[in-house]
Write a protein that binds this DNA or RNA. Structure first.
Length: 195
DNA sequence: CGCCAGATTGACT
DNA sequence: GTCAATCTGGCGG
């Protein structure tokens, strides 16, 4: 699997749902010390701003909400239930929103990921937002880092094209919108939930 | 200032 | 099936 160039910042200057769908098949690349950890994105979810009851920007003016309305293409690390979740800020110029990365197919640094995750089961390595964050050594230190700079510790790059895309409602959300905002590669073995 | 909820996971009864 | 862990921000549950 060849890892391509980083995606430009304006890739993220679109509707979050568009970006979420376009990110499938792209490669999330993490440089940890000297090791490259990477995986193909196979599952994403879109979140909007104040109008989205599931968004952290819904009734908030804190740092996370501000970041959701700030520069696109920045990593947004969100802590919940004792885990770190990895998002990318993505929205149109006048809006707010982001994309949650929910699952990866590991392609580089698999041994390191196994060590970080404490499991040797390839299929369990990155099949969930909290799991992939742990497998890639993602934590609050990466908050607000740009993912569109080639020498960044965390980047998103060109990968393979995906056509077999399906959608569903978001996972684990109590107050969802009435539209499907989860996107995934239909036949991937690395999804966070079976479909 | 303390308590609760939240986009989850894994351990335990 | 139930429960707790880690962290942030809103609210007085």
């Amino acid at each position: 699997m060849k890892i391509g160039n980083v995606l430009p910042q304006d890739f993220y200057a679109r509707d979050p749902a568009q970006v979420a769908m376009s990110l499938l098949g792209k490669v999330l690349c993490r440089v940890l010390k000297r090791t490259v950890l990477a995986g193909v994105i196979v599952e994403t979810e879109a979140y909007y701003g104040r109008e989205d009851p599931a968004s952290r920007a819904h009734k908030s003016s804190g740092d996370v909400a501000t970041t959701l309305y700030g520069d696109v293409g920045k990593a947004l690390i969100y802590g919940v239930h004792g885990k770190w979740l990895f998002n990318v800020v993505a929205h149109e110029p006048d809006g707010g929103g982001g994309v949650l990365i929910r699952a990866l197919e590991p392609i580089r640094g698999i041994e390191t990921m196994k060590k970080l995750r404490g499991t040797s089961d390839l299929l369990q390595l990155t099949n969930g937002p909290g799991r992939l964050a742990k497998a890639l050594g993602i934590d609050k230190n990466l908050h607000k880092k740009p993912v569109y700079l080639d020498d960044s510790e965390i980047t998103i790059r060109e990968g393979r094209g995906e056509k077999n895309i399906a959608k569903s409602f978001r996972i684990g959300v109590r107050k969802d919108l009435n539209i499907p905002l989860r996107f995934y590669v239909k036949d991937s073995k690395f999804l966070s939930v079976k479909t």
